[in-house]
């Protein structure tokens, strides 16, 4: 891939497509995050230049919504479901196990940049509670033992 095609990222395409219609800010931010994995300060400045919305206001929107991240995530993202069913079925034990094994808390990334742990509202697999999602694979009916095993298998890979 040469330098020009590398620049040709979906986020840039969406910026070019921007035609001044109202309500485009959130989709543009989503596009930036889809492309780079997080919303960087640079991306916010770009959007500000194109749309004329002040950077401060954009920052306000970014920090309001849970979906937007201002820092990159680790290689493997562990989403721990904190929905009601998972809570009632003891996801706290699972989270404690993860915290213990990885040495990080929610919204943190390990020093080697390998694992990030995030809390999500509901993954929608309440019947398999407690549940976590590792990248895009779901692990259900977790126990502390099963959780440790999943982590060990991931480390070995």
């Amino acid at each position: 891939m040469d330098a020009t095609t590398q620049e040709f990222k979906p986020f840039n395409i969406d910026l070019w497509k921007y035609d001044g219609h109202a309500g485009a800010l959130i989709p543009l931010l989503q596009s930036a995050q889809d492309t780079y994995g997080y919303v960087s300060e640079r991306a916010m400045d770009y959007i500000s230049q194109v749309t004329g919305i002040p950077s401060a206001e954009i920052y306000g929107v970014v920090t309001f919504y849970a979906q937007f991240r201002t820092k990159p995530l680790g290689e493997i993202v562990i989403k721990v479901c904190n929905g009601t069913a998972c809570h009632v079925n003891g996801v706290k034990e699972i989270a404690n196990t993860l915290k213990d094994e990885l040495g990080i808390d929610y919204e943190e990334t390990t020093n080697d940049g390998k694992f990030s742990m995030v809390s999500v509202a509901c993954l929608g697999c309440c019947s398999l509670a407690p549940v976590m999602m590792v990248n895009n694979e779901t692990f259900g009916r977790l126990t502390p033992q099963k959780t440790r095993k999943v982590l060990r298998d991931l480390r070995r890979k």
């Binding site: 959130i26 989709p27 989503q30 919504y65 849970a66 979906q67």
Partner: peptide
């Protein structure tokens, strides 16, 4: 379609 961005 408008995608929400995670705010209850």
């Amino acid at each position: 379609i408008k995608e929400g961005a995670g705010a209850f």
